[in-house]
Design a protein around this nucleic acid. Structure first.
Lengths: 233, 233
DNA sequence: CTCAGATATACTGTATACAGTTTAGGAAAT
DNA sequence: ATTTCCTAAACTGTATACAGTATATCTGAG
């Protein structure tokens, strides 16, 4: 039985989430960009996109601003929007910024670990190591880093993470497409390095967790450089 | 004489910057929040703000979203906007995130230093050490950290910096108001620590620059904790 | 065939309009 | 006097409208 007395709010009940069209549009466009369905460098016209999605320009506009913060589209000085193209320098930026942000998150996660987050991380790494489907591998990979960020419990760090998260996903997807196109197996790369990070966090060893994370992302960076990421798929 | 041949573009000419009402609104509201003119926790109504500024709701809406990214306002689950209140935890977050981001920027700045940026930094520190007016001190303080970020030459790091920059300014202004209200002189605090950072950067010693920055921000954090920041002015 | 100029189309920034929902206020009842 | 219920005002999310500017198309001259 649920108390209807609002002065003593019920625990575990969250205010209902309000979904806006802008979020929906942002999600769809984001997915389309990550999947390569919308090519790098493509111009995005508000009216056309609005027509395609059967909404007005307003939510489209808001969605594009969000995607700009995600770093996957950009506006020129005239207000024209286009899908961002990633140069080799961009890839380096993403790698180095991830290192900085995620080393911090790994340290904090080691310090703030709880039973629930520990279980979630273990579960994730286990599933990650078993998974063979490329799409799911990506999903679990991103989820692992998200989980650590969550565990870190630092709202503003999370905000920063959101500014690179989508770009990280994009590079992952691009790499997978590249590997598929060149018949290079995806599973034998360095990304199985989640385990050392997990162990360090479970040991609550902040320093070791940070180092493991730094190494992991450096390895990922090397992979991207080797694949010639930023030279477009 | 300026060549009109667009195929061989003239150096040093930038596309004209387009100022939108949204930016103008964001600037004004940001300033009002930093100065305390709009109190922490105040509700912000789009129609009222639009009427006050004599613009429509559209640019106001866009401005508020920008300010949300700046971390100075927040939207509740109903879409209502209010000026954010800073708890002691928020202050800790701002301090620790600044450390992470700015240690990185100091290192990069040491590596990427040019003659111009060196001159600009020297000039800034010199002016900072001479200045006595509180408002100008704040301006120069923020400008110093901006300059280092600029010098670092890392676009995505700069994006992250922007998510805390305004909050940094806000804490500075709050501290100054607090000190003024309690007749505590502002000039004798630890903030004169820009010099060691500058020297390390000029020496192109990335490690030392990072350490100096870490210490500087830690000192600033201590000052804030001591003043009881997050307990509102 | 190439290029310049003119006209038409498209796009962004901003304003206004509207629908559904929330907040506030006041009347009625206890 | 307090509480409940109802009505009115206000606010957000979304759609539509409009003005000014940029892009694209087409025509005609060389």
């Amino acid at each position: 039985m649920i108390s209807l007395d609002t002065s003593t709010p019920q625990q575990g009940l969250q205010p209902v989430r309000r979904f806006t069209l802008a979020e929906e549009v942002a999600d769809q466009v984001r997915r389309a960009i990550i999947s390569g369905q919308i090519a790098e460098g493509s111009a995005i016209s508000e009216p056309k996109l609005a027509a395609q999605l059967a909404v007005s320009r307003v939510p489209v506009r808001e969605a594009l601003v969000e995607l700009e913060h995600d770093g996957v589209v950009e506006f020129d000085h005239r207000g024209r929007c286009q899908v961002r193209q990633f140069s080799a320098d961009d890839v380096r930026e993403i790698v180095t910024l991830r290192q900085t942000l995620e080393v911090m998150s790994a340290r904090l996660a080691a310090e703030n670990l709880t039973a629930e987050t520990a279980a979630a991380l273990q579960e994730n790494v286990h599933a990650f190591e078993q998974e063979t489907d490329v799409t799911n591998i990506s999903r679990l990979d991103v989820a692992f880093h998200d989980l650590i960020m969550q565990t870190a419990g630092h709202g503003r760090l999370l905000t920063c993470w959101r500014t690179v998260r989508t770009q990280f996903e994009l590079l992952l997807a691009k790499a997978h497409r590249w590997q598929k196109a060149h018949d290079i197996p995806v599973t034998d790369h360095a990304l199985r390095g989640h385990r050392p990070i997990l162990n360090a966090i479970l040991d609550r060893d902040a320093e070791k967790a940070g180092q493991a994370m730094r190494q992991h992302i450096a390895d990922w960076g090397e992979l991207n450089y080797k694949l010639g990421m930023g030279k477009d798929v």
